[in-house]
Design a protein around this nucleic acid. Structure first.
Lengths: 218, 218
DNA sequence: ATTATTTTTTAGATTTGTCTAAATTTTCAG
DNA sequence: CTGAAAATTTAGACAAATCTAAAAAATAAT
């Protein structure tokens, strides 16, 4: 089966929403896709015909087995291309998302395999997200939000949940990236902001919103 | 200005046809694009509005300055990606065309620039075709069809005109590639086939059709 | 439990790129 | 130079992905 780029985008969006919501709703997906709910309904009918989603009118929907597999292929391609753009072409991690959004729809699976090998079969993309292998398997690692790390414990930044350009720019400013070693030195009850310390540099304050989106290996 | 992938394909096709025909016709382009003449007419109206072609009803058409520039960008991207697929990912020269057809529509010009640098600013793609630089400039080299090379003169294969999979497979069989040094040892008047000799291996016979499509530097 | 609100779906339209069939224009042959 | 053939364009239709506005269903509130 092959899918249009638009179908793949819907499939990927449902996949990501399923991580958080066990049943996905029309409005939720329409917000994710920047379309109107009516357009989502139309697309769902198409995806149901293609056996990509389990869908009951007015009752929400989920990916089928086949839908999940397809999503993993798209996610794999997206993350491999991001890795390529950052580690081979030298882009910054906040510049690659939109390019990868286009590249992920290149169809050849042989290309994906060769790209994977060329890159050395990386397990994680530049934002710390796991790259599914060619069977769709994802290596899970135990991570904890920076907001919940105990004081004085040195941890390693392993991924970033919110990957908006704004967030990534802010992290660049703080010199926080994947692999950065840091510790939380203080926690302020008033606004739940944190004081953190990276290596030998001065401590800095990060907001609760930032801390909640940065994940670490303890 | 940005163009859809389909528009870019039309622009590229007109560009290539202009190499051979000074005015391009509807039927010719429809054959090149595998569409019906009526579809070409529709597209031409769109491209004329966008000032990509000079077009007079029933009289044929040509690219404008802007159209030519756009075509060169697409050709540049196509050939850079082919170079990448062959020289970095290890594909054969007969496998890369359709992938490059998709990759050439990735929009970011920054990506093109970085890819070009990553590849070492190559001047020719895997089929020996020149890669336009970032200003659209093409390095022209003096080439001669194998069919017209004098006997016993050792020459270097520099490009292949017909790049169908069938042709490239045949050349693979003969072990003829870009950079191959060879000489024509005999010319048979009956069917204009040639006997050629590559390095120390046995001489082989190639047909007129093949010889006309293989170009060399003398 | 009935009404009000929110969510979802349907109906009908639009854009892009394509098609077929018919009409028009150009070209070519006698 | 005129009629037939070939090439081109127009007209009308269709599929994909979207929209708005209206209708229908589900949920929440009194």
């Amino acid at each position: 089966m092959t899918y249009t780029a638009t179908e793949e985008n819907y499939i990927k969006a449902i996949y990501h929403l399923q991580d958080v919501h066990e049943k996905v709703s029309t409005t939720l997906l329409s917000a994710e896709m920047n379309t109107r709910p009516a357009s989502v309904t139309d697309m769902l009918k198409k995806l149901e015909l293609k056996k990509i989603v389990h869908y009951q009118k007015y009752r929400g929907f989920n990916l089928t087995e086949q839908g999940n597999k397809t999503a993993l292929v798209v996610v794999r391609k997206h993350r491999l291309w991001e890795y390529f753009l950052v580690n081979k072409l030298g882009f910054d991690w906040d510049e690659v998302h939109s390019m990868a959004e286009e590249l992920e729809h290149i169809s050849s699976s042989e290309l994906t395999t060769r790209l994977d090998n060329f890159l050395g079969n990386p397990a994680f993309d530049p934002h710390g997200d796991p790259i599914p292998d060619n069977k769709g398997k994802i290596r899970v690692i135990k991570q904890e939000s920076l907001a919940k790390i105990p004081l004085k414990k040195t941890v390693t930044v392993s991924s970033v949940k919110n990957q908006s350009i704004e967030m990534l720019e802010l992290l660049n400013h703080f010199k926080i990236g994947i692999g950065t070693r840091l510790k939380v030195t203080k926690r302020f009850d008033f606004d739940e902001s944190l004081e953190i310390k990276i290596a030998t540099s001065h401590p800095t304050i990060i907001s609760k919103q930032v801390a909640q989106n940065v994940f670490c290996i303890i």
